[in-house]
Write a protein that binds this DNA or RNA. Structure first.
Lengths: 306, 306
DNA sequence: TCGGGGTCATTCATTTTTGAATGATTGCTC
DNA sequence: GAGCAATCATTCAAAAATGAATGACCCCGA
């Protein structure tokens, strides 16, 4: 049995993603008959039907679903290879892909990255913002800012300190609704919080209770403005919708945002991580270092160290 | 800039591995001019010289060395894809790749795997024996038998108990040199042990000292027959070269191998691991289960559990 | 019921890729 | 130093892959 040509996998993946031969052809810069022939040949070589040709488009079969993750992996690796080769071996240039949470990526990273790029005009930054952690081992990203300690081997990780979360509100809201003085007061306020009870939220709630014994839990307080999107929470606070959590350093930067119950604190330990092999890549190394330094600055003389 | 065709990476990798266009062509089932053209095109698309054409063969450039790991990763993924598709979705058949240490693979696994294959004639087993842990996340292997606890996420792991190591010798040796009665006696014996001071050996030495306070360390005993190959150690013990460590259950099976200082024990915790995604693959699941059961039997009603 | 926009399959000429053959060069052996 | 067995580069004809064009089909909305 002959191995399929690797490019067939790329075509296969495009068809999986788009759901049609024509769309895949457009993405790949090929034509629809070519894509169709690629699929045919892959099916022949693998001895599997990959798509059932129904008139309303192609339906991937079980076999297609099964091998798709492998094709995705091929794609991320190929993309990583191109990023790697995009930069020289001495100078800080080329493409670096960074993954971070949306709040960090939008509120914290821009000045850090702008300064980095000012120093290295040849550097192109790709920002992938999501709470789904992209896999550094599979090179889905080159450098990551994480709020959970990366457990995988073969990663260079650096703790940059703890980002502190605290309750904040807009002065407009506080003049209207009053300023809470005790944890118990919060029960009478409009609280901004999470929508779903994700694993992170449950963990955070438990930790919050541990750190701040007087703080009532979700059940007792009740949340009036719920969203899982951290940026939306921040926007709600800014708009005077109520009291919610945001990063204290972030709030300090905002023109008019006031801290509420300053004793309540929730530290978010933060790491920067990248694959070991990328240490020797100037662009990744420089980005890593800039992120570490920038975040430590942001946190305010963080603990640093490994 | 156009993306290079993924098959160019495969050709590139073959050239890296073989060191010549002709050899790569033979491996790939292509011809030498084709391989040369592929390399040319990849160099053109990446804007990098990958090989310096010297008369005495091709020398990979720094750029080639840099991207080779990515090409290797592509190759392992493609291989994993083919293994995946080699089996059906319901029946236990196709190719399963297992990695284990050499002693386990040669002395322990054969009957387990033979029984597994007897039950499932369509199952093809690939055994990769090495102390280098192949990366399950990158699908270098489907199932692994490990002596260290796998730390990576996204793995299904199962503790199968502790394999006990003990000192053993051939009766011929013992009649010739006497049977040691105390740890101190070992100093007067021919000891079989490791060659280099690897991280594992250092750790094992420390652990050994902790578990068996009276046991002298390497420095005090002195090793007279040194090899890092565990099979070679076992062979030396069998040949009556002296006293060395081997698995007690293994020694029991040998026709004539006698335990020495039975109080001395060194338990080797053992795990079976595979990638989470492969749980739904019958061939991997069956292999995983068979290995767990077989190893628990081997250990002798091991502790089991997770 | 009738287009319009989308899909995929088929055909055929064109382009591209490939392989066989050949030549040039090197390293090794005798 | 000649002969042999490698290597890679080049050439040219054959094979393969591709794309444009066309036709058939389906869904959707008028």
């Amino acid at each position: 049995m002959n191995d399929p040509d690797w490019s067939l996998y790329r075509t296969f993946l495009a068809v999986c993603r788009t759901g049609s031969l024509s769309a895949a052809a457009r993405d790949l810069g090929l034509t629809q008959p070519t894509v169709g022939r690629h699929v045919d040949e892959l099916e022949r070589l693998l001895r599997r039907t990959l798509f059932t040709r129904s008139p309303q488009g192609l339906m991937p079969t079980d076999a297609a679903v099964e091998i798709r993750p492998y094709a995705e992996s091929l794609a991320t690796t190929a993309a990583a290879l191109l990023r790697q080769v995009s930069g020289g071996l001495e100078r800080v240039e080329g493409i670096v892909r960074i993954t971070a949470s949306d709040v960090i990526g939008i509120e914290v990273l821009p000045p850090i990255l702008a300064q980095l790029q000012a120093a290295h005009p040849g550097l192109v930054v790709e920002l992938s913002l999501s709470d789904l952690v992209e896999d550094l081992l599979h090179r889905e990203a080159d450098v990551a800012v994480r709020m959970t300690r990366p457990v995988q081997d073969a990663l260079v990780i650096r703790a940059v300190g703890e980002i502190e979360l605290g309750l904040h509100a807009h002065p407009d809201y506080l003049t209207r609704a009053g300023t809470p003085e005790t944890f118990a007061d919060l029960a009478r306020h409009r609280m901004i919080g999470f929508d779903r009870q994700t694993a992170f939220v449950r963990m955070a709630t438990a930790e919050m209770r541990r750190l701040n014994p007087g703080f009532s839990t979700v059940e007792q307080i009740g949340w009036h403005y719920r969203t899982d999107n951290n940026l939306a929470q921040l926007a709600a606070i800014r708009a005077g919708a109520g009291i919610g959590f945001c990063q204290t350093r972030l709030a300090e930067r905002q023109p008019r945002l006031q801290r509420v119950l300053p004793d309540l604190r929730y530290p978010l330990p933060t790491w920067v991580a990248m694959h070991e092999d990328l240490k020797s890549s100037p662009r990744c190394r420089a980005t890593f270092d800039a992120l570490v330094e920038g975040l430590q600055d942001y946190i305010g003389g963080g603990t640093g160290g490994r």
